[in-house]
Each structure stands twice: as structure tokens, then as C-alpha cells.
Design a protein around this nucleic acid. Structure first.
Lengths: 140, 140
DNA sequence: TTGCGTGCAAAGGTTTTGCATGGCA
DNA sequence: TGCCATGCAAAACCTTTGCACGCAA
């Protein structure tokens, strides 16, 4: 049973969504979002209220930054089933890799069957380092 | 090259570590920690400073709570190689499952080889629902 | 017209910081 | 003794809230 709320299509809502949509695999802090959008088009409290609502509605994802301290937001591309596969995030360059791989489906089954746990890709971001960054790290 | 800091063994540091160690798979907010320890033994700012340092040193892990908003801390049991396997966290009951499974090693290889990405279990918590909670959810 | 959405400013709560003191090594 | 750690209180910061007005449906 979902909350049947009327969602009004306001300019502020569209501006925020456009901003996030136009940077597909990037993650932003509230600071960055308000910095980019406030002052001209949207008030700060509106940004906070919109973010909050978009998270609830599953339009954007709340993650945490490298150190784990900052809270970041990223657009979820429902058309590409981003809520069905895992995302790998490079702790160095921030790149997001969409792990759309049949091995993961097997893993999910295995974990459900053997470990008694149903994975939730939608709310999980797996951390690590991409190979390019790893090479760089080793050279230094 | 690591920061060579002298770490002093103070009573406050021990009290905080003991508190976290004695609740192995539980996660605490700063609020809960200060609530449990401050007033008697440790000052608030000391708790914040200790937490911050312990995170840097890899003694505790910073995660995020259910909604993704609250920041939580959990002790990392180095003796049990908790930084080498993934942790599954039930979004309903909060239970942590230590995923010490050889299939994960294979998965790590696969992802490194095929997807160009080295996973970092230490800083990753995989979300989902444990089967007990899933059953409960379905009954309701 | 209805009632959700917005903006401003104020309130609220959490985390950080400055500084003098305390305590480990 | 030399330095790091601690505690208090103040400052800084970020987020939420109240209220009146605006605007989508």
C-alpha cells in the first residue's frame, strides 16, 4: 500500500531533477546541490525538502562519501533498471560501474539459499578501486 | 607511508573501545555512544575526537543507518579478519551477517578480471533483508 | 478553488574548535 | 619533561520548521 500523494510538477522540482539527470553517474552533497542551484532558482529549504521526497519516492539514492562522513545523492535511472543491479564505486576517482552481470544473479541466489539473506542492490553501493586508479596508486 | 603518530593509551580510549568491542555486531550512532558513556567517564568532544581517530586508524567502521541518513559506527574485529570479508546488514532488524564464503573470493576475481574493479570489503556493507524478517514482512 | 509547494528567517541539533589543564611515556 | 589527550564552553554548521504567499491541477 503506497502513499497516494499528489505530486505537483513545479519548476523547482524539474530543475533539481534535470540537474541530477544531466550528471548520470555523479554523486552530489547537499552543499554542492544548493551551491549549484540556489541563489537563482531554488531556495535552500526547498532543496532539502525535494531531496528528502525524491529519496522516499526512490528517484534518487542516498549514499555516503569516501570517508563515510558526507552524505551524497545520485540519480537513479529507472529506465535502465538501476535499481536491479549493484553499483561499484571507485573510492579514488568516484566512477560508478553498473554491475549488470549474470554472475550476480547467481550470487544472489546462493546468498539467499545458503546464507539466508536477500540482497538489495537498490540501496547498496559496493566500494573499491577501479583498475586505472589502482595502477596509478602503485606507480606513486 | 603511514602517519607515524604516537597513540597514547588513555582510560577514555579504552572505555570507548571496550564499549564497542562488547557489542560486536551492533552499530551505534554518536548519540548512543555519548549517551552511554558521557556524564560519567568521557566528555562529548573527546568521544567525537576518538571516533574520528579510530575511523582513520581502521579500528571502527563508519556506516549509514536504515534510511541512509544517520551515521553509525561499528567495531572491526581484526582478529577475525572482518576487514577481509563482506558484511550483510538486514535493513529491518539490523543484524550483521559475516559473509565468509569462498564464492565471494571467486566473485572478487571475476569482477577484477572482467569488470576492472577491485572490491573493498572493509569499507562496504551490503544491504538487504534477512529471511526471518522477510517472512515477517510477508505475513503482515 | 483547493491544498501542496516555496521562500524566508528563525529554531534546533549536532559537530568542531580554542584554550587551559591533565596524564601517558 | 615533552606532547598528546581531555573537558568545558563557545562557535560553527547543517538541517528542519513555522508561517504567509504562490502556483499547479
Amino acid at each position: 500500500m503506497k502513499n497516494e500523494k499528489n505530486i505537483y510538477k513545479t519548476s523547482q522540482r524539474e530543475i533539481l531533477l534535470d540537474f541530477l539527470r544531466s550528471h548520470p553517474d555523479e554523486e552530489f552533497s547537499t552543499e554542492e546541490i544548493t551551491g549549484a542551484l540556489c541563489g537563482e532558482a531554488i531556495g535552500k529549504s526547498t532543496v532539502y525538502r525535494l531531496i528528502s521526497k525524491l529519496c522516499e519516492d526512490g528517484d534518487i539514492l542516498r549514499t555516503r562519501g569516501a570517508g563515510g562522513k558526507k552524505i551524497l545523492y545520485r540519480y537513479i535511472d529507472k529506465a535502465h533498471a538501476c535499481d536491479e543491479h549493484f553499483h561499484l564505486k571507485c573510492r579514488n576517482c568516484g566512477k560508478i560501474i553498473h554491475l549488470d552481470c549474470k554472475l550476480m544473479a547467481e550470487l544472489e541466489e546462493h546468498i539467499a539459499g545458503e546464507h539466508g539473506f536477500r540482497l538489495d542492490p537498490k540501496s547498496t553501493v559496493i566500494n573499491g578501486v577501479c583498475l586505472e586508479c589502482e595502477k596509478k596508486e602503485n606507480k606513486e
